[in-house]
Design a protein around this nucleic acid. Structure first.
Ligand SMILES: [Mn+2]
Ligand SMILES: [Mn+2]
Ligand SMILES: [Mn+2]
Ligand SMILES: [Mn+2]
Lengths: 227, 227
DNA sequence: ATTTAATTTTAGACAAACCTAAATAATTGT
DNA sequence: ACAATTATTTAGGTTTGTCTAAAATTAAAT
């Protein structure tokens, strides 16, 4: 697989990644305009590139019918995503970046071409399974455990996951999270839910705390499916 | 200074770095052909690029008169070299690469654009002063201490010193050194020089070995004792 | 079922970075 | 000094990835 990646340009890699993300959840073919919007380019440019990727058997493409990744293309996408997420872990864990600063830098680092580098980085980081945003990191062969992002209010008691985002990004809410030692990347377990007010007891590293229904409807957990 | 770096292409950065290295020791203007050879491109391509760099005030250029870096260009070069060498330290110290493997990877990493990244990397590495090949790492402002090192080929018989750097950082050369158990930090003494081929016999911890003139012109010693 | 609107593709052009071949300037040898 | 050699630049062309404007196709509305 790595053989195919080596003669890919930065632009080709970005298109492949874009197509992957656009078809990540709805597995239909992706529209030209959708790619153009994501890539911040024009539909005509997308058509040109898609033809080229089709030529290289990285995508399935028929005029006016949209585009989808081939198996080869999917593996290329996953190898780029692997690199992106490993670099994000590095930036947060080793260089003390905060979770919201790493994406733009990782967008550059993901294009560095060296299998040895990525293998050694993976080892250096202790073979992490998820990135700082709770997204799963594919292994060398593109295999990863699918994860689902859900609000705490929507999850059953017993669920466990990594806190990956907020619905309400107001300063007041973020301050509340800080005060209760809740940070993105923390792992929580839902211990109990009160029927009468919808409040939820969750376990954190610091201990267990009770959060109101309003809080529970504003915190996303990334559930790591272990099977 | 960093302001100017941001709209530079990868290719422009490589040319600037190339011109810097070609005028590092002989501070005269650099020839078009010399750049072409270093960049593995054609003289006509160099002329095109040099015009563009001149337009951007990164080099001083007059037709047929060669080219030299402007102060602005010199600072750009040093910021790239800083990044290159910091990444090399990272690869060796943190990821356990060997010193002969890091150059090619650093050639890619040096182009990543993020001041925060390089500052945090510098801190993470403990503000190293030299890279794995003994070359000095410029600080944020392009200041660095020029080391007082000499090539074995330029030293008289009887000289003794610590191996602190290489002139040729090609993987082939560094591999040769490894094979002969020559590493940075080792102490050598120059025992004998053959007039007819310029080869030199040096004593190492492992014993005494004879190195060719070509090797002798590529190994730097920091002199301890000169007789 | 047509007409209208939105989407997608084609045609033609442009900038960046490279090339070959030819012209021009600088250097060298005698 | 002047011819020969070498170095450098110009002219014209290619590839990659982008663009605008116009044509073709598909989808939506009446
Ligand atoms: Mn990201
Ligand atoms: Mn991420
Ligand atoms: Mn190097
Ligand atoms: Mn180095």
């Amino acid at each position: 697989m790595h053989l195919y990646c080596f003669n890919m340009t930065l632009s080709e890699e970005d298109y492949i990644k874009s197509i992957y993300h656009l078809s990540e959840f709805n597995s239909k073919s992706v529209a030209t305009n959708a790619i153009a919007e994501q890539m911040k380019t024009k539909p005509s440019s997308v058509t040109d590139m898609v033809k080229k990727l089709s030529e290289k058997s990285l995508v399935n493409y028929k005029k006016y019918q949209g585009v989808s990744l081939s198996e080869k293309g999917r593996l290329v996408a996953l190898s780029i995503i692997r690199k992106h997420r490993l670099w994000e872990v590095f930036l947060v864990d080793k260089l003390n970046f905060s979770w919201d600063e790493v994406h733009v830098v990782a967008e550059q680092l993901e294009h560095i071409k060296s299998d040895a580098l990525i293998d050694k980085l993976d080892a250096h980081l202790g073979y992490p399974k998820v990135d700082p945003h709770g997204d799963p990191i594919p292994n060398k062969d593109g295999v990863f455990t699918k994860s689902i992002k859900k609000l705490i209010s929507e999850l059953p008691v017993g669920s466990q996951g990594v806190c990956v985002g907020v619905n309400d990004s107001s300063a007041a809410f973020l301050k509340f999270l800080d005060k209760n030692k809740i940070a993105l990347g923390d792992t929580f377990k839902i211990l109990e839910r009160e029927d009468f007010d919808g409040s939820v007891t969750i376990s954190t590293r610091a201990g267990s705390i009770n959060i109101s229904k309003q809080i529970a409807t504003n915190l996303f957990l990334e559930i790591v499916d272990e099977e």
